[in-house]
Amino acid sequence: MDNSHVALVSMMLKAESFSPFRCDRNIALGINLSSLMKVLRCAQNEDILTLKAEDAPDVVNLVFETSESDRLSEYDIKLMDIDQEHLGIPETEYAATISMPSSEFQRICRDLMALSESVAIEATKDGVKFSCSGDIGNGAVTLRSHTNVENPEKNIDISLSEPVALTFSLKYLVNFCKASGLSGTVKLCLSNEVPLLVEYTLASNSYLRFYLAPKIGDEE
């Protein structure tokens, strides 16, 4: 979760993404992200990565193996206590689910960001409309369901049980879109008055999920 508790990221890497995978009991490892980034930069793209932690660990161990040159590098990162409260995310039936090419979503967010800091997402049976208004004027992008037979990654699929209209901060969405490189498609799930779920599906049933709290009009 970010400092101001507006957005939350959750990434699930299933056991089948690893080979081998062994975990004797559930264990939580608190890792400082910038430290992890530093160490991951020491790896090369084709390296085999092994993650290891003992029972009641002080460190997590990362090993990078380069298969062709027998190079072996090994790093330990000190663990930290994460004192933040852990939020439980309830299973939600969303009123609207939209899947589209991740590049399309990225483009919409970037384009609208130029005009305003927030975007209204309206999903109706006709399609989904992303609109915003700012000091210089206003803008809107509308998408409809669309099937591309040759390239199913370019499909736009809207399924809807009731119309939804919500407003979100574009600053956060643009940051979410940085995950576009990980997956060709993105799924947006919305229900009125509930945080937005932005999901990037990864290989072997794994996923990267972002949740974003909506902006609400004042109650007074």
Binding site: S4, A7, E85, G88, V194, A213, K215, D218
Partner: peptide, 27 residues
Amino acid sequence: TSQQSRLEGFFKPVQKTEEEVKSLKRK
């Protein structure tokens, strides 16, 4: 301007298990 809401309004914090509370206290 409309107000940004927070995730706590929607997701509730998970209660810490007794074991976690104890270990936290010890730490």
